Simulated scan of single mutants.
Amino acid sequence: MNPFANALLAWFDEHGRKDLPWQHPRDAYRVWLSEVMLQQTQVVTVIPYFQRFVAALPTLRDLAAAHEDTVLALWSGLGYYRRARFLQRAAQICVEKHDGQLPRDFEALADLPGIGRSTAGAILAQAHGLRFPILDGNVKRVLTRYLGIHGHPGQSAVEKVLWQHADALTPAERTADYTQAIMDLGATVCVRTKPVCDRCPLAGDCVAKRDNLTAQLPSAKPGKAVPTRDTVMLILRDAEGRVLLERRGPQGVWSGLWSLPEASNHDHAWRTAQSLARIDDAQSLAPFVHVFSHYRLKVEPLLFDEATAHPRIADNASLRWCDAGERAALGLPAPVRTLLHNL
């Protein structure tokens, strides 16, 4: 075993995380679900989502057979809802083609929607102990600092080099523990800002520490201006306290989720509201900004209380009046759920 892996495993034995809910049992379905949830999300945030998800859908077949609204409701708050759809589609393919199991063949696994090379490696390494490298965000940070690799890790040339090192350093023994160890090190010690180098088992050979480059590595992504978009969200609430929700179309952010009707400005908002219900007055609520990866959405909520539904809405499958209990069972974007909860 190479010195890098030896040092990392010795640290893991003493300091690694061994009681995460997806480790008991550490089967392929639970590892897969945790890996997808953990993309760009911290462990402490993921744990309650994971526990709620597996309580409702404990097996891959349960996920494959679930209604999409159920899956999206369980996912609501994690963001990146496309991942939840890919998760369910991959489960359905496994039922159709792989006897209801995630395949142990790397190529077949990596070809499933939303999985790819690193997630496939993590599943095979952690669930089956097979020797496959991983390269998630934590691993990229550890390797770029340890090896002194410059250039944004998302660039193809840099990523190719990182994959070569990840493969070379992954041991044939204790692969599951090694995979967890390098992720744990990146998550708890070799963190983005102010890494705790005096607790790192790799510090003695780390190029970034030696050359005082921990603040510069990994290299930042070349910046570009993030645009801001404006929208008015319509909260149509009837005398029973129900709110009118609209299922979003298949394109754009929050595709397929239940959300609030939107308008480009106040005049448009009034026209839209009048087409959906009989209304009297509106109240402007506190505006807020929701940040996506590629733009900022400035939201102005407009509350229409005592709205009366038009009968024709009952014939529109994309519109429905929902009370708080019904909303809880639907996939709603997190800022919309929070907005309605705070009413």
Rank of each mutant, 00 (worst) to 15 (best):
M1A: 11
A5E: 04
L9Q: 06
A10R: 13
W11Q: 10
W11S: 05
W11Y: 11
F12I: 02
D13W: 03
D13H: 06
G16W: 07
W22H: 07
H24K: 12
A28Y: 09
R30M: 03
V31H: 01
M37Y: 07
V43C: 12
I47S: 11
F50G: 01
F53H: 04
F53R: 02
A56D: 04
R61G: 13
D62Q: 08
A66Q: 12
T70Y: 01
V71D: 05
L72A: 11
A73E: 05
W75T: 03
L78R: 04
F86R: 02
Q88M: 04
A91V: 10
Q92T: 05
L109N: 05
A110W: 06
S118G: 13
A120G: 12
G121T: 11
G129N: 11
F132P: 06
F132I: 01
D136S: 09
L143T: 03
T144K: 05
P153D: 09
Q155L: 12
A157P: 07
A157H: 14
K160I: 00
V161A: 12
H165E: 13
A166C: 09
E173V: 06
A176G: 15
Y178H: 04
M183D: 12
C190P: 12
V191W: 01
V191C: 11
V196H: 08
C197E: 08
D198F: 06
D198W: 05
R199N: 09
C200P: 09
L202Q: 14
A203D: 13
G204F: 01
C206M: 03
C206F: 08
T214W: 13
A215Q: 13
A215R: 13
A220E: 14
K221I: 04
K221W: 01
K221V: 01
G223D: 05
P227C: 05
T228L: 09
T228M: 08
M233G: 00
A239S: 14
L245Y: 08
R247C: 03
R248N: 10
G249E: 03
G249R: 11
G252K: 08
W254E: 04
S255Q: 15
S259M: 14
L260N: 06
A263F: 11
W270S: 06
A273S: 11
A273E: 08
I279S: 02
I279H: 00
A282W: 07
A282T: 03
Q283G: 03
L285Q: 07
L285D: 08
H290W: 13
R296T: 08
R296P: 02
V299I: 14
L303F: 01
E306L: 11
A307N: 05
T308P: 00
T308Q: 15
H310V: 02
R312F: 14
I313S: 11
A314W: 02
D315L: 11
S318H: 14
E326D: 08
R327K: 08
G331P: 05
R337M: 04
